[in-house]
């Protein structure tokens, strides 16, 4: 009965629903763009400012007509050599160390779970619950006694320790995606532990490994607190260089912008190259 009574209604109702759906979609699109622009404008501002002469950088209202110059970049390039070298060593070194340690750990916590794997898993993540500030005192003393202060090896070790729990959790979740039947097939085919990992597990989890490595690279590259407190010159990294770009007196915004732009470039490039595997890797554990 109700169907009969409503018979004339569908056409306009369907149309109105479509209008509502479209406005809803448009609303989300506008919001998405707004958020995207809000995040992008400071970055754009930084890049534009980096090309300004120092005198034009701090005017108010901001100048949009200016003759671009590379003088600040030249200044940055002339001074950043050791910093970028330290950053690269600490980042690459710690990321390799993380992967080398996290792979077997994740394997032992997923594919062939060891006794007490739950406790181990919780222990790893619990190390992230203590603020780094609370640990800096003891860390300083340990570094001092071990003669590792202002030493790049200290940063490699600390960055590896910092990223290791996250890496283990991530790689473990990727390994859980490896079908059990496939591992059994490998066992029947006669693959040992090493073959199993290299030929069967690795191809399946490699996108996950790439995304894990990228996240470790980004975190290590951007780390400031430990570098600031435990290094001076022999191991100081790019974030330290940014701080050193701020002089005690005088204008510095253009110089700082140029330095920050240079410092962001590696992360942006790395993220850009790997964005597909990053999305795939990060959503891998979420599918099931």
């Amino acid at each position: 009965m109700t169907a009969v009574a409503q018979a004339p209604a569908p056409a306009p109702r369907r149309a109105s629903r479509r209008v509502r759906e479209m406005t809803g979609q448009a609303g989300w699109t506008v919001l998405g763009w707004a958020v995207g622009i809000a995040f992008f404008i400071p970055v754009l501002w930084m890049v534009i400012t980096a090309f300004k002469p120092e005198s034009a950088a701090e005017t108010w209202p901001p100048q949009f007509a200016f003759s671009p110059t590379l003088s600040e970049f030249r200044l940055v390039f002339s001074g950043m050599g050791p910093f970028i070298e330290h950053s690269a060593i600490a980042t690459v070194g710690s990321t390799i160390l993380v992967l080398v340690l996290a792979l077997p750990a994740a394997y032992a916590l997923s594919i062939h779970p060891v006794a007490g794997w739950r406790d181990s898993l919780f222990f790893f993540i619990s190390t992230k619950m203590l603020p780094v500030v609370a640990a800096i005192g003891p860390l300083y003393v340990i570094a001092l006694k071990a003669h590792l202060l202002d030493n790049i090896w200290l940063l490699i070790i600390l960055y590896a320790a910092m990223n290791l729990p996250l890496a283990i959790w991530m790689i473990r979740s990727f390994m859980l995606e490896v079908p059990g039947e496939m591992l059994e097939a490998a066992r029947l085919d006669g693959a040992g532990r090493i073959r199993e990992i290299v030929e069967v597990i690795m191809p399946v989890v490699s996108p996950g490994l790439v995304s894990t490595a990228l996240i470790c690279v980004i975190f290590a590259w951007n780390e400031l607190f430990l570098a600031l407190n435990l290094t001076v010159t022999n191991a100081s990294t790019m974030p330290m260089f940014l701080i050193s770009s701020v002089p005690q007196e005088g204008l510095y915004i253009a110089h700082l912008s140029a330095a920050a732009t240079v410092a962001s470039v590696p992360v942006i490039i790395v993220g850009w190259i790997a964005q597909r595997s990053l999305v795939r890797g990060l959503s891998m554990g979420a599918i099931k």
């Binding site: 039947e181 097939a185 490998a186 030929e199 399946v204």
Partner: peptide
């Protein structure tokens, strides 16, 4: 195997 368990790579 039921799901064939072929190596995807």
């Amino acid at each position: 195997f039921q799901n064939y368990a072929l190596y995807p790579s």
